[in-house]
Write a protein that binds this DNA or RNA. Sequence first.
RNA 1: GGCCCUAUAGUUCAAGGGAUAGAACGAAAGUUUCCUAAACUUUAAAUACAGGUUCGAGUCCUGUUGGGGCUACCA
Length: 602
Amino acid sequence: MNPEIFIFEKAKAAIKELYGADVNEKMIQTQATRKEFVGDITLVTFPLLKTSKKSPEITAQEIGEWLKANSVEIESFNVIKGFLNIKFSQWFWQGVFIEMETAEDFGQLAPSGKTIMVEYSSPNTNKPLHLGHIRNNLLGWSVSKLLEANGHKVLKVNLVNDRGIHICKSMLAWLLMGNGETPESSGMKGDHLVGKYYVAFSNELKRQTKEIAAQENISEDEAEKKAPILKEAQAMLLKWENGDKEVVALWEKMNGWVYDGFAQTYKRLGIEFDRTYYESQTYLLGKALVQEGLKNNIFETHEDNSVWCDLEGDGLDKKLLLRGDGTSVYMTQDLGTAHQRFSEYKLDEHIYVVGNEQNYHFQVLKLILKKLGFDWSDSIYHLSYGMVELPEGKMKSREGTVVDADDLVEKMYQTAKETSLELGKLGDMGADEQEALFEMLGLGALKYFIIKVDPKKTMLFDPKESIDFNGNTGPFIQYTHARIKSILRRAAAEGYQKRVIDSETVKNSTSETLLPKEIEIIKLLNTFPTIIKEAGDAHSPAVVANYAYELAKEFNQYYHDVTILKEENASLRDQRLALIDLIARVLVKAMGILGITLPERM
RNA sequence: GGCCCUAUAGUUCAAGGGAUAGAACGAAAGUUUCCUAAACUUUAAAUACAGGUUCGAGUCCUGUUGGGGCUACCA
């Protein structure tokens, strides 16, 4: 029984009888009672005053009396200003506890029948992944898990940007300076190797640009356009588009290296996709849609044959859809892929996990689709996340301050290892188990650090702070879980069994079977499904992260104050074991949504 | 210039229009006879500024200021 729903229904009946009015959802506002007052749930009466035509205090008092008289579940109530604090009886909470305890998969919501596609990651194949991609990947993954917990069917997809001038730059530099270097010969991870040549290209382009600018006394912008190496890269792109065999073969080879590298990174991050799309296969999509739009006079053709969509009436600019030479742009492709996906799958929602620098792009995308008459345009959701900044400011490749994804993960692993060994509590743990633990902790710290922040906010990544394993961190929660498991192991060894006292026994019992702190924890546990629901609706796993932390903290305080293993009253002891077991299960479920695994021991 | 996002303790983050704004790190002090001190307890410390809406505003609206982004025949 959900206390909020219970109070909602009861209050509705109370108002009907007391004031003869039907009220809507908005008028019955409940919240958890603040800790300094007696009560479990609080009804805010202000929205009801127009109906009751009485003062807040009197309204609260009247409703309180009615509720008390008409439900055995309510033990007492008190009124403070316009707030009606309601306290449930002990056996009510006992019932809530039993319900959660026996639930099949507590926190997993019923199937919704909805299918949601989540596109995330979407890397370029000219360089390795960096910190920004990590935020994208972790968000995409956890949002997918969150939606699954909400009972939706989720399709995780990746759209790899495998074509274009950027990959030609890497290819060209490799041809010019590579001496046939391969991942095998260099011992480098494929994506890093290709990235190395992308940097080499940039450096050479810069050198040529400066030279030309000095020689011809022109601006660097102009000089860059004249640089031979850039012209060569453009020529290479043209060859690629025309299917030149040699260029395509090189392109396939180097992209292959990159995919091997990405696969390793994804695996270590614990990230997967149900389907991968490649831009080389989708970049021509959308042209047909543009023709259709032209036919229906939604788009317009300019003198040079380029096609545009005029969005000035909607407060936006004009947007190019086809170049004068008939080739398409990014927007054209996105229109096409969206159309293709909604046709192929019956999608109830399509989420794009993409940085906030593309807010405008998605605004335009949705609007154009709408103009083309596709109602599903409204089902597109741009999960826009903020940039990740470093203490010294933005990451800049020019200044070499880009944090590489693989380096970062490795560093987190190393720190976890050092910290663990320093604390020296691994006992008889085998080498393999230790390795797995270090990996679990290092990644747990990283993932939690990133995901706990509201996606849309710019976040600061301080390497020093991220490797701190105390406080509001992943390892704190992992540690809490390991401790609970440790207690449960000890209890099992002693022959104790977890068992909840049944409601009937509680009703007839004169003594307390639940401590105030335990009721507090039960209340918190009971909000879990609501948290899942709200976080899912808001597309924000951060809410789940903060919830898990709160729960872990509650346990730590609880265990500090209460005896469990040494509790003499066997039924209380067994019930407490059941409670901490439930906490552990909820932690596993919550952290699983974040992609974080919890250790049995550490 | 136009459009969008953002502003909370020294720092990093919380707070569905509701009561005395909550944590963590850092600072100061304390706690180890149920598990495992990666813990627990206590203290000091914040809503950028000015208006407005409301019984009630960190939250909604307007303006000012600071920070970020977008405003390519790039992706």
